[in-house]
Simulated scan of single mutants.
Amino acid sequence: MGKISQFLIINQNKIEILQKGQNGTPIIILTGMGCSFDEWYEVTESLSKSNRVIMFHRPGLGASEIGHGVRNTQTVVNEVSEMIRLLKLSEPVVLVGHSYGGLCVQHFVKEYPEKVAGIVLVDSTSVDLKVLDDLNVPVLNEGSTDEIWMEKCRAYSQMKREELRGIINPTLTEKQKLLPNDIQKRLMNFQINPSLYEAMYSEISNWKRDGEIIKNLKVYLDIPLIVISRDKEYTIKFGTMDGLPEWELRLFEEKWQELIMNQVNLTLKSKFYIAQGASHSIHFDRPDIIVQSINEINSLFI
């Protein structure tokens, strides 16, 4: 079950790979935008007891080289396909995607359905994410539009690590403080990497266009899928505790859950679960439901 850290050369970039476990159907987990695979420690520790689990840091994240290419879902699809080839994964894999990683999973399965045995989407970005821009939520949008995030990412990408440390002041959540010390240190350093923000700038620049491209890939899929949504009421409750207007939160969360529920239409074999008591970071709040869902997909192949 030991952790194997290594690097692969993909598209001439050195890419950081995490592998745990050696048996069972391979599970590839794609993280959200700007997220480290170390955040998934609890999930991967559990899954690796019965399966080979593989994660990677997209170019610019962690110790992966940023390179010079455009960061979009098509690029990630190509990288995952090459990773599968280099790791000599001859059998179809279970693909898990959280947030932006889920958008990449939706793209991958439409291009390479023969390489996928099952899918778990964890509060995944929707191919229709642009409709969120039409919501009348001025307070929620204050400081958090794509344009504002891109401006921040562009500025951060041009700073030195210590300059970023002073501005971002990286901290850990209470749940992250329960992780092993080496993981905590990696998570702190992960946030002050200028290339992280260069990658995020490119991903944000392209993700709405990516959503349209994925929607237009008309592919008949008959692959087992589980869609997991965050808890709408839980998210609204904590948003109001931060001083955000409840009516805006409710409008946004109802639309978000609608978009998540629509993802069951990706295949003919799908289920939908709500992760009770979980925010967008379901892998922290309810790792059990992710493990349960992956094991449920896995049980189809035993």
Rank of each mutant, 00 (worst) to 15 (best):
M188C: 03
D123G: 02
G67L: 04
G32M: 01
V53L: 02
K218A: 10
H98F: 01
G101T: 00
Y156R: 15
E82D: 08
L164M: 10
F301S: 10
V219H: 09
I17R: 04
Y112A: 02
V264G: 03
R154N: 14
R71P: 07
K269C: 01
H280I: 01
V219Q: 04
Y234E: 12
T31H: 04
E174K: 10
T145I: 09
R154Q: 15
D231H: 03
M200S: 13
D182F: 13
K110P: 08
E65G: 08
M188F: 05
V264Y: 04
I28E: 04
R71Y: 10
A155N: 12
R250D: 09
Q22Y: 14
I236P: 08
T25S: 09
K208M: 07
G67K: 01
S293Y: 06
K14F: 12
V120E: 00
C35Y: 15
C153S: 12
S293I: 09
T73A: 12
V139S: 08
Y201Q: 03
Q176K: 02
P287W: 00
P113L: 06
I4T: 08
L259S: 02
I289Q: 04
T235I: 12
S46D: 14
T171Q: 06
G239R: 04
S281K: 09
G102L: 02
I54Y: 01
S81A: 14
E212M: 15
A117P: 05
T31R: 02
Q12N: 15
P92Q: 03
Q6L: 15
D288G: 00
H68L: 15
Q176M: 04
K208E: 09
M261D: 11
V219W: 05
E151K: 12
L249I: 11
T31Y: 10
G239T: 11
S202E: 05
G211Y: 03
L164R: 00
D38G: 08
L225F: 00
S126M: 00
I226G: 05
Q12M: 10
S279D: 09
M200T: 05
S36G: 02
C35I: 10
E233N: 14
E91K: 11
L86D: 03
E198D: 08
T235S: 14
N141M: 13
R165Y: 11
F7W: 11
